[in-house]
Amino acid sequence: MSYQPAFDASIPVLTEVLGDAVEAAPAGSARKVPAPTVDTGERLEQEALRQWSDQDWHVLERRLSERILHQLQGRVDFVLEQRIKDCMAEALQRALADLTGELRKGLQHTIEDIVARAVSQELTHLRTLKK
């Protein structure tokens, strides 16, 4: 049984990248490179190494950088959003626990005051009946 690496369609293969870069090469370039296929991939690499100018390499570098940054930005946004949600959930949970504790203490104090007043009023009422 041979190992088959997982194929991720979102990652461009070299022939796609080189094909895009060749299409974006300066208009004054006299060489014509056919659209990349599985059969022409190696030939494209050899031709690029042999014939491309510094400007062609700079175009390729810029396009690769832009494509990679664009692909990473979506992933970074997702991860950042998840981390923010997690941090916010944790902070809100702590704040809710603190608020619940404060409300509980305040409610306890209020109930104690109400009961004390009610007992005091009831005792006062009973004393007035006794007289």
Rank of each mutant, 00 (worst) to 15 (best):
Y3H: 12
Y3E: 06
Y3M: 08
Q4L: 14
P5R: 03
P5L: 06
P5E: 06
A6G: 02
A6K: 11
A6T: 10
F7D: 11
F7H: 14
D8R: 08
A9R: 10
S10V: 03
S10Y: 01
S10E: 12
I11R: 06
I11A: 10
I11G: 03
P12L: 03
P12Q: 03
P12V: 03
E16A: 08
E16H: 06
E16W: 02
V17E: 02
L18K: 00
L18S: 00
D20S: 09
A21Y: 01
A21K: 01
V22F: 02
V22P: 00
E23D: 15
E23W: 02
E23G: 04
E23Y: 04
A24E: 15
A25H: 01
P26G: 05
P26W: 09
P26H: 13
P26T: 11
A27M: 11
G28V: 05
S29Q: 13
A30I: 09
K32L: 07
V33D: 06
V33R: 04
P34A: 10
P34W: 04
P34M: 05
P34C: 07
P34H: 06
A35G: 04
A35K: 15
P36L: 02
T37V: 11
T37L: 09
T37G: 12
V38A: 11
V38L: 11
D39G: 04
T40D: 03
T40A: 04
E42I: 03
L44A: 04
L44M: 15
L44G: 01
E45S: 07
Q46H: 10
E47Q: 07
A48T: 12
L49G: 13
L49T: 06
R50S: 09
Q51M: 03
W52M: 05
W52G: 01
S53Q: 13
S53F: 08
S53A: 13
D54W: 02
Q55D: 13
Q55Y: 12
D56H: 10
W57G: 01
H58M: 12
H58R: 14
L60E: 00
E61D: 11
R63M: 13
S65P: 00
E66W: 06
E66A: 13
E66F: 08
E66C: 05
R67F: 04
R67T: 06
I68W: 09
I68E: 06
I68P: 00
I68D: 02
L69G: 01
L72G: 07
L72Y: 12
G74N: 07
G74K: 03
R75K: 15
R75N: 11
V76N: 03
V76L: 10
F78S: 12
F78K: 14
F78H: 13
V79E: 13
V79S: 10
E81K: 08
R83M: 11
R83N: 11
R83S: 09
K85S: 14
K85Q: 15
D86Y: 03
C87F: 05
C87D: 13
C87L: 14
C87W: 05
M88E: 13
A89L: 07
A89M: 08
A89S: 14
E90F: 05
A91F: 05
L92C: 04
Q93H: 12
Q93G: 12
Q93K: 13
A95Y: 02
A95G: 05
A95E: 09
A95N: 06
L96P: 00
L96T: 15
L96C: 14
A97W: 05
D98T: 10
D98M: 12
L99G: 04
L99Q: 15
T100L: 09
T100N: 09
G101W: 02
G101H: 06
E102V: 10
